[in-house]
Design a binder for these strands. Sequence first.
DNA 1: GTCTATATATGGATAGAC
DNA 2: GTCTATCCATATATAGAC
Lengths: 206, 206
Amino acid sequence: MKRKEKILEIALQMFNERGVSEVGVREIARALSISVGNLSYHFPKKEDIILALVNRLSSQNNQHYQHYHLQPASLNHFLQLLANIFSNQFDHRGILIGNAELKHIYSTIFDYQITLQKRVQGFELIYQNLQKANHLTLSEADLQHLISLTTLYARFWLHEAFIDHVSMSKNSLIEKYMKVWSYQLSIFATEEGKASLGEYWENVHE
Amino acid sequence: MKRKEKILEIALQMFNERGVSEVGVREIARALSISVGNLSYHFPKKEDIILALVNRLSSQNNQHYQHYHLQPASLNHFLQLLANIFSNQFDHRGILIGNAELKHIYSTIFDYQITLQKRVQGFELIYQNLQKANHLTLSEADLQHLISLTTLYARFWLHEAFIDHVSMSKNSLIEKYMKVWSYQLSIFATEEGKASLGEYWENVHE
DNA sequence: GTCTATATATGGATAGAC
DNA sequence: GTCTATCCATATATAGAC
């Protein structure tokens, strides 16, 4: 089992550096000092490697969501959740960006439409609870708007970051994109909510 | 010259349907009823085809920007500009989505950082003029926020659309994503600005 | 589990005749 | 401009020794 994990680790590193389509199975095997045959024993197809990495990303994100819901709803905690997800996405950037096979892979793992629905419903629940906690003030239209923008932003900030700001560090990038979203949330935040956003940024800069 | 254009037209159509990486030069040649050698005569590398399509997209978008600036600044005209750009992007979706080579292509055509700067400055100018025209009320922070979100949204709505809503028609998709952005603009719009947004949607539904 | 070797397929790119 | 034929690289997949 150790070997499979090592393969995933090295493969992800190479995908991150050069992109999925630019990395061949021979190169992965060489980087691991094993043979192609051996690699094929563990992951018969290259897609199986990507699949395993996608699953890992997905399950890690789910853990972050679950952890969030154990806490009282607050914009501070919500930003922490986003930062964790952003960090996780960054670490898997190789398989999330410019990956033509990804769509096909998603359709093989699960019903993608259901995944999307769950994502939307997840943010809906979070925002509704933030409203109940008196951190946000949202009309129904505001809520739907925020959900639409959130689902897009939380997925594609990484694409822009990776294309436009290659030279920036992981932490700088996450901070940059978190600040934009924090600002967007502050538009709909109560005074209590704004204070909670402030708490997040105080903790970040310690 | 006729032949080159025909190649671009068919290639783009195939890229849109199946993605750049899934379409081979042999298939393009077959669809055109010419030989691979002949195709290579016009475009020595597959990348040259993509490059030509990227340039076409870029120059068409520039024309839309120029046309916008000939008109008085208004949110109505700005939405029209966005709709034109969205439409153009949709038509070139094959080369904009899931295209691992795109980043490399951009770096070969021009200094990409300068292109980015121009894009940001372009939106800055547009928003500043909309403020002068009394359609938007923006603090400096609002302005920067809106620019950040715009540059991201105007590029990646297409990715989300293509991944999540494959079955929707071009017009429905553009309307869906335009509505979200219209709502975002309305947050910062004056009464006059909101009326101008309303004008746009009246004309759309005629 | 791991190796070497090889079969098979497919993709991009090119050489040279017409 | 257009063709045919071929080269070269890479991916999957498998056989069989250790």
